[in-house]
Amino acid sequence: MASLLTRLKQRLDSLAAGSKKALVAYLVAGDPDLSTTLELMHGFVASGVDIIELGVPFTDPIAEGPIIQAAHDRALKTDTSLNQIFDLVEEFRKNDSDTPVILMGYINTFLANKKALESIHERGTDAVLIVDVPGESTLENIGINNSHIASISLISPTTDLKRIAKICQTSSGFIYYVTLRGVTGASNLDISEIEKNIAHIRENTTLPVMAGFGIKTPADANKLSKVADGVVIGSVLVDMIHQQSTQKDYKKIYTYLNEISAVITQ
């Protein structure tokens, strides 16, 4: 069984070996409920998703646009906790030992569960992305002791060259390049700026660079996949999950993901 840091690294290496781009898909754990999240995770993988990013709901998600904020609220209404999310990943691993899972959330919920975080690699989690921790901090710096999981950092259009160098040094897994000035789900992509900034990042690291925030259409994904090693799709999926949550028919989402997967590997 693939495990620990190596699961993420293996997936990224094998994508690179086949000159393929990664499709990273985000959904909020517990929206509309945890068993649906589990179903969707497997459905995502079957539809071409290479890496899953599980949003950890928080009461005050300051980097999120209205779509993902609302999903956080819905997940919290059913009392989704970080511990239940660790269980969810463990459950997911029973039928999928290869797809890396990243937990993306805010520092206060992680710090409230410090002890449990020390062993999450044993329960199937491969990495964390803590949105409100500056990229030059390591997990250890903020009091999280787990050297088996990757710590993924954000770099944005406003990050200067000095910080890019620092962040590249402390990151592992991959670099998440925020493609716009704004919250998740906004829409003002500037491809030439993105291309230039990703080039700066590549001068500082050999880690893959994924592009996310504001990617909506297959055309967006196609354009970005030409400059990055993969794309992250979030708000669109979260919105579709919500639209379908009453009849729980997620075929549309899987079709969309297949479409994205096809255009980024072209």
Partner: peptide, 11 residues
């Protein structure tokens, strides 16, 4: 401290 999304660090 400064616990903010990366985009704000520059500002």
């Amino acid at each position: 401290g400064k616990f903010v999304p990366e985009t704000l660090m520059f500002a």
